[in-house]
């Protein structure tokens, strides 16, 4: 039995296979609509994350399966002091696979150690969110038709943004990848990511404050939200939140086949006027998220 706790749990080959299945689901959805008939997915969300939960639930339903679960800790036994491990073992008696969201980092790993069914980490604090990364990889592959030979711009909160760190980790395994890291000084990519991932794998990168300087080189522009809860004081947050706003004017110098991504929800980092630009892929990205989760559920349930 396999779990998905961290994106590093999957080999490049396995990710390729998941992308292959997801693409087949997109092309032939009817083939898959009863694959998980009589199977149950439990969504254990110890903190609310509506879009991730809906994505998992929609994925299971499109496979013909059913969904049970809870959407916040107060409606679970965790509020009575039950351990993550005990909750998981109990839910494992009622379901075939579990997607878990938890505010504490490492909770899904703890759950997986004693679980009798596969665990999918649906986000644990600021640590890991592998299905977001899989979503990003499927989006890039479907939009660019490759995961190699890409110049990827990452923009916004590169310090606390776990999506960004996971994407860097995942993309570092492909050939000829370059990163342009665009952020204010306060929100730069942490040293350990540069040393342990980028430099260790000889991945070229440029750090800059200026979004327009390199925008013409980019194949992918990944925008992120500056999250209020990451800041200790309101002042810093207010000063930095509007630092980078992507609008039509800034896109003038960009390539015609640029792919603009965002994990959503956005606040104001991307002006609404950009939504109608054919290069805007962030809503499609949410759709890809459902398809890759379908592929993942099939893989972990070992359904061909």
């Amino acid at each position: 039995m396999r779990h998905l706790i961290d994106i590093k749990d999957l080999s490049v080959q396995e990710i390729d296979e998941l992308i292959g299945v997801a693409k087949d689901i997109i092309a032939h959805p009817e083939k898959y609509q009863e694959k998980c008939k009589y199977k149950k997915l439990a969504t254990l969300f110890f903190e609310p994350s509506t879009r991730t939960r809906l994505s998992f639930e929609a994925a299971m339903m499109e496979l013909g399966g059913n969904v049970i679960g809870f959407s916040e800790a107060s409606s679970s036994s965790a509020s009575k002091g039950e351990s993550v491990s005990d909750t998981t073992r109990m839910v494992g008696c009622y379901s075939d696979i579990i997607a878990m969201r938890h505010p504490k980092e490492g909770a899904p790993l703890v759950a997986s150690l004693k679980s009798t069914v596969p665990i999918i980490n649906a986000g644990d604090g600021g640590h890991s969110h592998p299905t977001q990364t899989l979503t990003d990889l499927l989006t890039i592959f479907c939009e660019k038709n490759r995961l190699e030979n890409l110049t990827i711009g990452l923009c916004g909160d590169l310090k606390f943004g776990r999506t960004v760190h996971s994407l860097i980790t995942a993309m570092s395994r492909y050939k000829n990848i370059k990163f342009i890291l665009i952020s204010p000084d306060e929100l730069k990519v942490p040293e350990y990511v540069k040393k342990e991932i980028l430099e260790k794998n000889d991945i070229p990168y440029i750090e800059t404050n200026d979004i327009e300087e390199h925008i013409g080189d980019l194949d992918i522009l990944y925008m992120t939200r500056v999250q209020k809860e990451r800041f200790f004081n309101e002042e810093d947050y207010l000063r930095l939140k509007d630092y980078y706003i992507l609008n039509k004017e800034k896109l003038e110098k960009a390539k015609q086949d640029l792919c603009i991504m965002h994990p959503l929800p956005r606040v104001n980092e991307i002006a609404v006027e950009v939504d109608d630009d054919p290069r805007a892929c962030y809503f499609k990205q949410a759709r890809y998220g459902k398809y890759i989760r379908m592929a993942l559920i099939l893989k972990l349930l070992e359904i061909k």
Binding site: S83, V84, H102, P103, K104, E105, G106, A107, L109, V110, D124, G125, G126, H127
Partner: peptide, 12 residues
């Protein structure tokens, strides 16, 4: 790390 699961589950 105050956000680590070990911070709330003493048995771990």
């Amino acid at each position: 790390n105050p956000r680590c699961i070990t911070s709330i589950e003493q048995e771990l």
